[in-house]
C-alpha cells in the first residue's frame, strides 16, 4: 500500500457496508463492555465545564447546567470515559488517514462554487447549531441518533428522524454550498 497510489482511482475508502458492519460490531462491543453506546459530543461539553469551572468556579456553580456535570467528589470532569473516547477518535482518524494516504497538510475542502471563506463560515455556523442542538437532543448523531436508536431508545429515534428529516427539508436552500 503505497501512499498517493490513489491519484487516478479516486479516494480509497472501505466498502460502506463493510464499514457499517464493523461499526455496528464496535457499537455492540461498547454496549457489552460499557453498557452504553459511542459518543462524541459529551467530551466537548465536559471540557467546557472543566474550563469554566477552572476560570470562574462561582459562575459554574451558579449555573444549573455546569453544576450538573461537575463531579461532587471534587475530581475533574475531564477524568471521564467520554474524554478518553474522544481522544481515541481523534487518533483513530489520524491512523486511518495515515494508512490510506489522506493525512496531509492543512487544507480547506469546499465545493468549487463557493470560496474557502464561505465554507469556513458555514462550518462554524453548522458547528454552533450542532452544539446547541446536541444539548437539547441529549447527544449528537453518534450518541443519540446512532447509539440511542441502536439501544432501542425512543428519544434516539426522534433525534435521528428529525435530524435527517430536517436536513432534507433544508437541503434545497443550501445546495449552493455543496453542488
Amino acid at each position: 500500500m503505497k501512499k498517493n497510489s490513489n491519484i487516478n482511482k479516486g479516494p480509497r475508502y472501505i466498502n460502506p457496508y463493510f464499514g457499517g458492519v464493523l461499526l455496528g460490531l464496535l457499537l455492540l462491543a461498547t454496549f457489552y463492555i460499557a453498557g452504553r453506546g459511542l459518543s462524541a459530543s459529551g467530551a466537548v461539553k465536559l471540557s467546557i465545564v472543566a474550563i469554566v469551572d477552572k476560570i470562574a468556579p462561582a459562575h459554574a456553580e451558579g449555573n444549573a447546567y455546569y453544576d450538573k456535570f461537575i463531579p461532587t467528589d471534587g475530581s475533574s470532569p475531564l477524568f471521564n470515559w467520554l474524554i478518553f473516547g474522544a481522544i481515541g477518535t481523534f487518533f483513530g482518524g489520524m491512523l486511518s488517514g495515515g494508512i490510506y494516504g489522506r493525512l496531509k497538510k492543512l487544507r480547506i475542502e469546499h465545493s468549487p462554487n463557493i470560496t474557502g471563506t464561505t465554507r469556513m463560515i458555514a462550518a462554524v455556523v453548522g458547528g454552533m447549531l450542532f452544539g446547541i442542538g446536541s444539548q437539547f437532543g441529549r447527544g449528537c448523531s453518534s450518541g443519540a441518533a446512532l447509539s440511542g436508536t441502536a439501544s432501542l431508545s425512543f428519544g434516539g429515534l426522534l433525534v435521528m428522524v428529525f435530524m435527517f428529516g430536517i436536513g432534507y427539508v433544508f437541503a434545497y436552500f443550501f445546495r449552493k454550498l455543496w453542488i
Binding site: 453498557g35 452504553r36 459518543s39 461539553k45 467520554l82 441529549r138 447527544g139 450518541g143
Partner: peptide, 11 residues
C-alpha cells in the same frame, strides 16, 4: 419490569 441500575448518560 422496572429498570435497575443503568449507567449514566452518554453525550
Amino acid at each position: 419490569k422496572k429498570k435497575t441500575k443503568a449507567t449514566a448518560g452518554g453525550c
